[in-house]
Simulated scan of single mutants.
Amino acid sequence: MGKINIFFLLLFVFFILSGCLENQETKKNEVRKVETKDEDIIHSEVVSAKSTIEDAKSDEEITLQEKDEKWIWDGVNNYILFRNGHYVTAYQTFVEAVSHAKKMKESTVYFRGDKDIVWQSSNKSTSKLINAPLISQLPELPRGCEVTSLAMLLRTAGISEAKVNKTKLAKEIKRDTTPYKKENGQIFFGNPYDGFVGDMYSLNTPGYGVYHGPLAELAEQYIPNKVINMTGSEFEDIMFPVSNGNPVLVIHNSWFKKLPESQFQTWNTPTDKVKITMREHSVLITGYDKEYIYFNDPLSNIKNKKVNKKDFIDGWIQMGKQAITYVK
């Protein structure tokens, strides 16, 4: 009886030791995580570029390839976050990437590879002025400030006047053709988030404008894989491209400051209710300093027009923080 108990005891010890060895081997094969404290944020250990490429190959959403020692990022997560020169992760939008990058020191956000930097924590520039071409929306497009600002943006990006101009963009911009109707004190019309609303060519018939989405889509046709939609970002973050010499198209208002609520009305559109102001306007930001924001205004036809910085930012926030730019 004693021999049987010793046998089972030895067998039990054998299984325990086998399990411990298996656990140790499993731990060796697991991806090691290291917690580092940086401004009260806990991060996973960053990995090398080579490891990142290997990891991305098995990811269903993103593909990272190495070609001629350059990175090519192809997929939905176009904004790539690096910290201290090491890959951290990637995001679908500029806003997501930058909001996370701002929690880290020595962070950089790239766009679709390792060449184009769209945001960097080390940027300390306090002033910049870009020489972007000035184009007037008048007389052809009394409601065409957005496509005219887009024409200025694309011209600065290197697209020739022969290939792009305001009237061509006016024909190509996506439209919401919902007819204007006023019934029981309510307005039914199109949604500028979906396309240009109303008549762009005359102020004698109903019309409004268009917002960032359709503008970015149209810009993509001329400079594919280079358009950066920064809508929703903090104003200081959309100034990084300006620091690098790339102007920024914004949706604003013609007073260039925060408007009183009396200047707004609500429209019923096929997709949603939208808060609208007939003061809506679009300009191309060309510079900044400590006191002013500079921009090309297609309505007044003034190059590098300047407005008080705080006023400009307040008005821009009120209009939904809409901004698009490009990488060279």
Rank of each mutant, 00 (worst) to 15 (best):
K273H: 01
I173K: 05
P260G: 08
L169M: 04
S262V: 00
F196I: 04
S262H: 00
N78T: 11
N23G: 15
W316Q: 12
N301W: 04
V242R: 06
L153F: 01
T271D: 07
G75V: 05
F111Q: 10
L284Q: 01
S58A: 13
F94E: 05
S160H: 01
D194L: 10
N308F: 04
K124V: 12
I80G: 13
F12N: 08
Y110L: 07
F264V: 01
I293M: 09
H86M: 09
S99W: 03
S122T: 15
K305R: 12
L17Y: 04
S243K: 14
N253S: 05
L150T: 02
L153C: 09
K37I: 15
V88G: 06
L169D: 02
D237Y: 00
P241R: 11
S125R: 13
K50E: 12
M319H: 01
I6K: 11
I42L: 11
E106C: 12
K171D: 13
L9P: 00
H212E: 10
N204M: 14
Q65D: 07
F8K: 10
P133M: 06
A90G: 09
E236S: 15
H43P: 00
I228R: 12
S122N: 15
K37Q: 15
T36W: 09
I117G: 13
G2T: 11
T269L: 05
S202I: 01
P139E: 09
V197G: 06
E54V: 14
F12V: 07
L11N: 09
N301C: 08
S127D: 11
N131P: 02
P298L: 05
P206D: 03
N84Y: 02
C20P: 01
C145Q: 00
D59E: 08
E146V: 00
A90H: 04
L203P: 01
S202T: 03
V47M: 12
K181M: 06
S233R: 06
K163Q: 03
I173E: 02
R83N: 11
S58G: 11
N244I: 06
S44I: 15
E220L: 07
S160R: 08
N184Q: 10
I285K: 05
G158Y: 03
D114N: 14
H281Q: 04
N5Q: 09
R83L: 05
R32D: 14
T108Y: 03
L11K: 11
D55N: 14
P298F: 00
I223E: 06
N204A: 14
R155L: 13
I302K: 12
A132I: 01
Q221S: 14
E54T: 14
L141C: 05
G198I: 01
V283W: 01
K103L: 11
P139I: 00
V283E: 03
P270V: 08
E234L: 10
L249M: 13
S160Y: 00
N253R: 02
L81R: 03
E30D: 15
Y91Q: 08
T36I: 15
G158Q: 10
K128H: 09
Q92N: 14
N304P: 03
G190A: 11
V47R: 12
P214Q: 13
F264E: 04
A90M: 05
N296K: 04
A97W: 00
L64V: 14
M230A: 15
H212P: 04
I302M: 09
V34P: 13
P133W: 02
R155M: 13
L150I: 02
K226M: 09
F111K: 12
E291R: 12
D311L: 07
E61I: 11
D314W: 02
D311G: 07
I135C: 07
I251G: 07
S99M: 12
